[in-house]
């Protein structure tokens, strides 16, 4: 029983165990009774079986893998992670945590190392609110046994001083960026550089995972799509000709045309007169 109390204390410390903490759910999402839950395994060197209560959720889960989002009925789940092949009836789980998911939530549960290298579970709410047209949402979650880091894109810091198990997020121009992770406040690159393709209207969650001490730090990217929004408008007139042409430029153009026609008419008249004169 002691491990349950321990996991409760851990959850309270982390403060991230309850999902649906005011993260904007997409319009209408609450109509369903399910939450969408993904699971990321970020503990190096340990293949595991993941249980929700007594039910096996993911067998033979390899480090560095991320499941597709699974619909789970809203509710409270006792998530237990066992070393692969352990007997859930008699063995103690390697990690255990109670996670609550509300209808319409989109969440990722990460099994990962703490800054000190201890395995733990953190539940993150994924922001699936709309992204402005032309942009992409970039979120970085520090789930590695490593100190505070900075995250850079194209050499410029995007997130600074990020610590385990926190996350930071920003909306950036869609496109491909070269990203790397450095020790906070330094140019010491610990991960990357790696190209990140940030498609327009998507949410991209990057997990910095592994262990600095064991030199296996790595990135894992989770992309959620369907958060695009329409541009704010189409301003497709630079002049006012089509509106009636009362701008100086349009009048000048019009006047010049009329003047040319008048000049032409006069020239025509002059030619006729000249012809008449020669006939005399």
């Amino acid at each position: 029983m002691s491990h349950i109390r321990k996991s409760t204390a851990l959850a309270a410390t982390l403060g991230t165990c309850v999902l649906g903490l005011g993260v904007a759910a997409p319009a209408g999402a609450a109509e369903g009774d399910d939450a969408m839950v993904s699971v990321f395994h970020g503990v190096p060197g340990l293949t595991v079986d993941v249980y929700a209560g007594d039910e096996e959720l993911i067998p033979d889960f390899e480090p560095g893998t991320l499941t597709d989002p699974m619909p789970l009925p809203a509710g409270s789940y006792d998530i237990k992670v066992f070393p692969d092949g352990a007997d859930p009836a008699s063995d103690d789980p390697a990690i255990e945590k109670t996670v609550e998911v509300a209808a319409g939530d989109n969440a990722t549960i990460a099994a990962h190392l703490s800054e000190d290298g201890e395995p733990e579970l953190t539940a993150y709410a994924n922001d699936t609110s709309d992204v402005p047209a032309g942009q992409s949402r970039l979120t970085v979650r520090h789930v590695a046994a490593a100190p505070a880091v900075d995250v850079r894109a194209g050499g410029q810091p995007v997130f600074e001083g990020l610590t385990n198990p926190n996350e930071d997020t920003a909306e950036v121009d869609a496109g491909t960026v070269s990203a790397d992770v450095t020790l906070a406040g330094t140019d010491d690159v610990v991960i990357g550089p790696a190209d990140l393709t940030l498609e327009e209207g998507t949410s991209n969650v990057v997990y910095a995972w592994g262990s600095a001490e064991e030199e296996n730090l790595a990135l894992k990217v989770q992309t959620l799509s369907g958060m695009h929004s329409a541009p704010s408008g189409v301003e497709a007139g630079a002049g006012d000709t089509q509106a009636g042409g009362n701008s100086a430029a349009a009048w000048l153009a019009g006047s010049a045309g009329a003047a040319a026609l008048v000049a032409g008419a006069l020239a025509l008249g002059n030619r006729r007169r000249a012809a008449t004169v020669t006939r005399d």
Partner: peptide, 14 residues
């Protein structure tokens, strides 16, 4: 929740 956002892609980075 089933269709919005759509199923996540699982892209490997570095």
């Amino acid at each position: 929740p089933e269709d919005r956002p759509r199923a996540a892609e699982d892209a490997e980075a570095a």
